[in-house]
Design a protein around this nucleic acid. Structure first.
Lengths: 118, 118
DNA sequence: TTGACATATGCTCATATGGGTATACGATGC
DNA sequence: GCATCGTATACCCATATGAGCATATGTCAA
């Protein structure tokens, strides 16, 4: 068991998506399939960097590839992001007015119940 | 400008939360304020590790601290997670049936419009 | 075949990680 | 004052990162 410094970026979607450039790539792919050079132009990154980021995204299943002649067309696969969504969703109550109001109501119910004595 | 290898874990919530133990800590704090040793017991980690993780979470604003005698009570501050929620929310359509059905409707509308000729 | 294009991989470098262990700091109680 | 509890920090280590640059691989065109 080698002492792991930091989980690999390919360990899961959380790690893959921690890199801002990779989020940008996903955002770009949200508009539809793109070839690598497309992304290079869109993001203003060097081609090798883009390819490497795409590899990471591929390994966590956030993108799929398709060969089209000389080009490799990447497409988004949002399912990989679901665990992130599911996790963070539980914290929505921290900022959502909707939940804040709900909390108020629940608090009132609780007080009332205590007032009645069980 | 030193060549940064990987963004600091304290760079933003995305990076802070990429570490599973830190997510566990936040999940534990969702139940309410906790002292460090509480978390040590709950997570089964060494105390210094917990303190370090808490430091990272503090630096990205995901937790707040309060001194109570010898203890330091940490409490969740979910607001820091909002950017994550907002970002990932846009990908919900990838797996949500709700959105899939919406897409079907939109597609039908589009077809109809094309049929009518502009 | 030769060459241009599109993409992936290899390598080096500086960096910061997270675990482990020891220790410093601060508050409390005797 | 002194021991003890609760927590933070310092240090060492192995690891993998992401950028930059060079190069390999694969595909089409002349």
């Amino acid at each position: 068991m080698p002492a792991m410094a930091r989980a690999a970026t390919t360990a899961d979607a959380f790690n893959a998506v921690a890199e801002p450039r990779r989020r940008e790539i996903l955002d770009a792919l949200a508009g539809g399939e793109r070839a690598v050079n497309d992304l290079v132009r869109l993001l203003g990154l060097a081609q090798p960097q883009v390819s490497k980021h795409l590899r990471v995204l591929r390994e966590v299943g956030a993108v799929d590839v398709r060969d089209e002649g000389r080009q490799r067309l990447y497409r988004l696969n949002g399912h990989a992001l679901r665990p992130i969504h599911d996790w963070v969703k539980n914290y929505e109550r921290s900022w959502s007015e909707r939940f804040e109001r709900l909390d108020v109501v629940l608090e009132e119910l609780k007080q009332k119940k205590e007032g009645n004595g069980s």
